[in-house]
Design a protein around this nucleic acid. Structure first.
Lengths: 354, 354
DNA sequence: TTGAAAGCGCTAACAC
DNA sequence: GTGTTAGCGCTTTCAA
């Protein structure tokens, strides 16, 4: 039986008033039962909001709970009900502000359904990632949402398929794991077409490592958009970075501009990178957007704050998180439910940088 | 007899790799014991690395674990050992990059000691905060680290004292809860003295809400530093904000500059605010630092990236987190241990903005 | 409407 | 070194 279908037990356990002293030892359900003069079964029923309890009995139990300062031991409850009510969220790097809003979306849906969310920083390390999936196998968590790159690929070769998890942002539609994300190919195309429409043809791409599926998809979107416009992309303008942080973007931009024929526009697969690019450009004396236009990706809250404000592809981060959580919950509720993959819309946000 | 050892079981599960068949049903320690021809106690000993097991027996058990695909059920283990091995970390807002590195520090120490860390976003809401403390009482978590403002104050009036938690960054030394933080009073003084040394006397303070202890401490540091220099602080230059985000800083700066006698320097209690201030200043045509100098607080990684790079007070964020985790672990190991309060050093980092 | 009792899967005495 | 067994604190049949 789902606990969330009943009134929250918290409501039945009011904060202890200052008048009633703290229990000397930990109270168990037996103590409450003894105190109320009923059986433990009845206490349990009251705690879980079952209706088949006489009002008078319920009051006795509640009074006993109050006077003993009893708190349910969820360790015991979890064992009995065989669920931990914990959801894992795996992110490659929670210092990256892109994830913050997604995680909020997940958290809010999880809480609404009586789950807690455990945020796990994997450092995009498959080893750590696996250690978190291991938590699922050990019943420490009921399910997981993975924003990490490696998992989707590993799911092909391992029995990760059978575990209750969903992919968010990073996904492989062929792998049989429920997912939510955006159409990275088209989003990248939109960014490039915006730059083309502004008259740019020497358009660089600053990408993350190839380990990321989205990196591959956005690269194809970039290349195809260029081809469709009859522009021949210069391979020297495509750079892959291991890191998404500001510094990485800054130095990549400086290196790009040191070329004989430097690009006049830079498309970057993340806003954090783009912010670094703007700084890097400035450090070599280039103005944005006059000398070089910059387009980012994600639309983190910072994007509108920098100088110049960043033109970028907005991802619906909150919805991404909420949707991921809903898919997972659906899967948890019914293990054999056919949970779909879903693609959410992106949006080009034009600001000052391009 | 375990069904997965039957050849047919594999054939019935085509989606799994044929190399390592997974169990059809969940294996328990009894299944492993049966498979290995030993008792459950022996299996438990092997699993927990006890030394008093014959090597030969150990191998038998390990082989049985392998062949059954057994995973320990930590729900059961937790009930038996009466610990969840989960630590809570409560932050008012995990979108704020200031917390990211602290949380990393906590996480790394926790993991080293076999604990998982659950990150909780309280939104600085005492209600949500209490619901997390409630998790402690219900044995869902073993201990907590709180970076939230309200807890310290509440600890005075409630029996929060008796719960296993430590305060980080936001603390009240009088409250009897172990804590780690910096000397906010002196740090603010250092920032103001730097500005004074640069010749400023019209120095504004953009502070957060009074609910934050650090806000009060930094305000006193600011006021006293000014007094000590014989400067009379203009009350119109002290603003309190509900929010720490970029927008809040931007509009506060604009309003400050609209005064008849606007300040020539702004000290801000957080880098995020300071970044907003720089943008707000720019939007009303003021140059930084030529027209107005800006000093931030925290030294988040972004601080060095913006234009101009931010002068700020650096907090040792990683160490703050690591120390908090160690204090908590110490308290958990020995409930009656006398866990101290600790103050870590801050540092003025001079960059371009002041 | 209530109670008695059987476990959930594990660890740790205690016995051999 | 290894096995037997008694719980950990709860939920949930099943009977009354």
């Amino acid at each position: 039986m789902s606990r969330s279908s009943h009134p929250d037990a918290t409501a039945l356990q009011p904060e202890r008033s200052r008048l009633s002293p703290r229990p000397v030892k930990d109270m168990s359900i037996d103590d409450v039962a003894a105190q109320a003069g009923v059986s433990v079964a009845t206490v349990s029923r009251v705690l879980n909001g079952h209706s088949n309890v006489r009002a008078e009995t319920r009051d006795k139990v509640l009074a006993a709970v109050e006077s003993t300062g009893y708190r349910v031991n969820e360790l015991a409850r979890n064992l009995r009900t065989a669920e931990s009510r914990l959801l894992l969220t795996m992110v490659p790097n929670f210092g990256n502000p892109f994830y913050a809003e997604i995680v909020r979306g997940i958290d809010s849906v999880a809480r609404q359904h009586g789950y807690f969310m455990l945020l796990c920083d994997t450092g995009a390390d498959p080893g750590r990632e696996r250690s978190y999936f291991e938590m699922l196998r050990r019943r420490r968590a009921d399910g997981a949402i993975c924003l990490d790159p490696a998992a989707a690929q590993q799911a092909l070769s391992e029995e990760l398929n059978t575990l209750p998890w969903v992919a968010c942002c990073e996904f492989d539609a062929d792998v049989g794991v429920p997912y939510v994300g955006i159409d990275n190919y088209r989003a990248a195309g939109d960014a490039v077409m915006h730059l083309l429409a502004r008259g740019h043809t020497r358009i660089a791409l600053i990408n993350s490592g190839d380990g990321y599926l989205y990196a591959q998809q956005r690269e194809r979107g970039y290349l195809d958009a260029l081809h469709n416009a009859g522009v021949d992309p210069d391979p020297r303008w495509q750079v892959h970075l291991d890191s998404l942080d500001y510094e990485a973007g800054a130095s990549a931009a400086a290196i790009l501009m040191a070329q004989a024929e430097p690009p006049t526009a830079i498309f970057t697969v993340s806003d954090t990178l783009a912010i670094g690019v703007v700084k890097g450009l400035r450090s070599v004396g280039k103005r944005v957007p006059d000398d070089v236009a910059v387009v980012g990706f994600d639309d983190i809250s910072l994007a509108a704050q920098i100088d110049p404000p960043l033109t970028t592809i907005a991802q619906p981060m909150r919805e991404l998180g909420e949707t991921a959580a809903r898919l997972l919950l659906k899967r948890l509720a019914n293990r054999s439910a056919n949970v779909p993959g879903v693609l959410l819309p992106h949006r080009l946000v034009v600001r000052g940088s391009a």
